[in-house]
Simulated scan of single mutants.
Amino acid sequence: MIDLDDPLINGYLRRLIGEDGITLIRNMPEGEVTDEEICNVLNPLKSASKEADDKVKKLKAEIKAAGESQADVKKLEKDLKKAEKEAEKAKAEAVGEYEITLNTVRKILFILYENKFTICRRERDANSGWLTFRWQINMDGIDYQIEREKKKLYRNLLKRKEYEDNNVFYVCPQNCLRLVFDEATETDFICPICGEDLVFEDNELFKQLLDTRIAEFGDMPR
């Protein structure tokens, strides 16, 4: 199992699937599970409340089906009264629980699947044709993915540094836009948005910050 508290892994996954996604991975049951089963694990109080409501509905249906059998009806009504109290209690307990919805669970699972962090098996019901997706976490490739992201970031930083080195910039005092010299001459050094005169921007500090960030990557090949 991966170390979700590792700053590098945690930061990468947080950008990919957010805090809810990390919570999902932490609490993912062993083996193959459906998205609904995952949702129930992530929202135990709301799951208990739903089960209690379903029990009430089932008992009401049984009372209706019992017809004229007074003995059965009397027992079922007693069970219903108890079930309704339990449902009210479960509903009240679930009020303050932070909910990760089924749609959110599905979105997280498919993002993980696209990045090869889950295994998905589909089952089709022979009678209804309904598809059931069964999921299993597989984070074996996360080190490779993080390395790819590092290289991508490194290349982007190098490109940005080259861009900053090779251009002279003018900016609008109202922060409307930032133009390179050739673009600024085309507008006669006037902001095309607000009409203010453009001013020269000294980007030396920004270039120093880029150099510092690039140096953090060490001897990574370009």
Results as ranks from 00 to 15, higher is better:
Glu201Gln: 14
Ile63Pro: 01
Asp188Ser: 15
Ala92Met: 10
Glu186Val: 12
Pro192Asn: 02
Met1Ala: 09
Lys207Val: 05
Ala66Leu: 03
Phe110Leu: 11
Val168Asn: 09
Ile17Ser: 02
Gln145Ser: 15
Leu157Trp: 01
Asn156Met: 12
Leu24Thr: 04
Glu183Thr: 07
Cys191Thr: 01
Arg213Gln: 15
Lys58Asn: 09
Phe110Asp: 07
Arg14Tyr: 11
Ile214Val: 14
Asp188Phe: 06
Leu112Met: 12
Ile142Ala: 13
Ile111Asp: 03
Arg222Ala: 10
Leu109Pro: 01
Leu42Phe: 03
Asp20Tyr: 07
Thr34Ser: 09
Arg15Gln: 09
Gln145Cys: 10
Glu196Thr: 07
Lys81His: 13
Arg26Asp: 13
Leu158Gln: 09
Glu186Ser: 08
Val33Asp: 01
Leu198Thr: 03
Lys150Val: 10
Asp125Met: 05
Asp140Leu: 14
Thr132Arg: 12
Leu42Thr: 08
Ile137Lys: 03
Cys194Leu: 05
Asp53Thr: 10
Asn40Ile: 07
Thr101Cys: 00
Val41Tyr: 04
Gly218Thr: 00
Glu162Asn: 08
Arg15Ile: 06
Lys81Arg: 13
Asp125Leu: 04
Val105Phe: 06
Pro7Arg: 03
Val41Asp: 01
Asp211Pro: 04
Thr101Lys: 05
Glu201Trp: 05
Leu179Asn: 03
Asn10His: 15
Phe189Trp: 05
Gln136His: 13
Asn115Trp: 15
Glu196Trp: 14
Arg121Gln: 12
Ala71His: 10
Asn175Met: 09
Tyr98Leu: 12
Leu157Asn: 04
Ile119Gln: 13
Leu80Asp: 06
Leu13Val: 02
Ile9Gln: 07
Leu131Met: 14
Leu209Ala: 12
Leu59Gln: 02
Pro7Met: 00
Leu210Arg: 00
Asn40Gln: 10
Lys85Leu: 13
Asp202Met: 08
Phe181Ala: 10
Lys55Pro: 03
Cys172Pro: 05
Thr185Ala: 09
Pro44Met: 06
Lys75Asp: 15
Ile100Gly: 04
Phe189Val: 01
Tyr98Glu: 15
Ala66His: 05
Ala71Pro: 07
Asn43Val: 02
Leu177Val: 08
Glu216Gln: 05
Ser128Pro: 05
Gly21Ala: 03
Leu42Glu: 02
Ile108Gly: 02
Ala83Gln: 10
Gln208Glu: 15
Leu109Ser: 01
Thr212Ile: 04
Glu162Asp: 09
Asp79His: 03
Arg14Ala: 11
Leu8Pro: 05
Ile17Arg: 00
Asp165Gln: 09
Leu205Ile: 14
Phe217Lys: 00
Arg14Phe: 11
Glu149Ala: 13
Ala65Pro: 02
Lys89Met: 07
Glu19Trp: 14
Arg213Ile: 05
Arg178Tyr: 05
Val73Trp: 11
Leu109Gly: 00
Leu45Val: 08
Glu37Trp: 10
Gly18Ala: 01
